[in-house]
Design a protein around this nucleic acid. Structure first.
Lengths: 207, 207
DNA sequence: CGGTCACGTCTACGAGTGTAGACTACTGCG
DNA sequence: CGCAGTAGTCTACACTCGTAGACGTGACCG
């Protein structure tokens, strides 16, 4: 971490606008991830930062703008998708399996997303954030044609696993052996990465 | 539809407890799917059924119990997962692609789920519903060992596609050609259906 | 030491939430 | 016709929400 979030030595932050704004934003990420956009109140966010509710609106204008900044910040460190094109599916599968394990703390942009999509305004903000941060980046990483829809399909898989394993907590998937899960996810992602443009003449399409 | 939801000929339902209960439940499914558990108010549900809010609680006890019945009802007709074991991945992929297309009406149990998981109580109810209706059923359909986690992985994929395509509406995936999407989903589901117990000696498992 | 301005808080409002209890009105039966 | 029971409504309560405006207060600068 950078050194700008220095905590005061006297135990109380003293009229430091920069640090207060940061504290509010961090508290917002935590609250939105845990409770979702609708569930997290401004007072809750403020309390987590040690300030009153009105300061939140003074710094961020409104809850909606606060959420937009929280989404932006939450997605900036790429926690799951690997940056290495050659080992993309392998490393991404391993990271996903590890970060969705029951022991892991569930502070994650995907959880924030899943718990906030109920609100249409939040969904719109999330869509923009997804495109800006992961979608575009992932599209560049995938080889072959039609990389964009395949990238979003990969994101669908990641989000789905996060949903079932950490938000809904289906038992069989939650208790699944991590090695086996990693292998399964790896196989699935390989299908998406190694683009079959239209391999295997599956011509028998109905409709 | 069955004939028990007969609408009155004089345009107004007249003191028919059975039909009123049904109307409330249908309105609840519609409202919860569109707005989620937190977003849909009791008054909204009641208004959709043409009654007042208090009647909802009189018939269902509380909003939470109403939600539980709505989830149960919403999941009973299997809309996506095919019942045919031999063509499971093929038909499920086709149905999923069709039902998540932009033209399709988004009244679906998966959307109801995705828009309601923010509430912990609702998430618990959904988990039970998933297990009861689709999970168990799908586990029986899948061949090979460890069918339960693979079934839930399949559900993760389905839920993720619903999320990205209909709830968040990422453009590349929403506008994706239906035939191509069906093919991609089919390939993915094949990986899950044709269980590789531990094929391809990726024995390097940590932990 | 005193002024000044930004940082932070307090009170409050209007709207919306789920739910409880009392009340009305309609239907069917004797 | 009158009684009874049930389908449905009305009013209300206690609470939380996001946000607006007025107010206090501490630190820096001269």
């Amino acid at each position: 971490m950078t050194a700008d979030t220095d905590e005061p030595r006297d135990g109380q932050r003293r009229r430091d606008a920069r640090a207060t704004r940061e504290a509010i934003l961090n508290s917002a990420i935590e609250a939105f991830t845990r409770l979702g956009y609708d569930g997290a109140g401004v007072r809750e966010v403020a309390g987590g930062a040690g300030v009153t509710a009105m300061l939140v609106n003074r710094y961020f204008g409104s809850k909606e703008q606060l959420f937009a900044e929280a989404v932006d910040r939450s997605f900036t460190p790429r926690t799951v998708v690997s940056d290495d094109p050659s080992a993309l599916s392998e490393r991404t599968a391993a990271r996903l399996a590890a970060r969705t394990s029951p022991e892991a703390d569930d502070l994650d942009p995907f959880v924030l997303m899943l718990r906030s999509v109920a609100s249409p305004r939040a969904a719109e903000i999330i869509r923009a954030g997804i495109e800006k941060h992961v979608g575009r980046h992932l599209t560049d990483l995938l080889p072959g044609p039609d990389a964009a829809p395949r990238a979003e399909l990969l994101l669908s898989l990641i989000a789905g696993v996060w949903l079932m394993r950490k938000v809904i907590a289906t038992p069989a998937l939650t208790d699944m052996d991590q090695g086996a899960l990693t292998r399964q996810l790896h196989d699935l992602m390989e299908v998406l990465v190694n683009a079959p443009p239209s391999t295997s003449g599956g011509g028998s399409d109905g409709s």
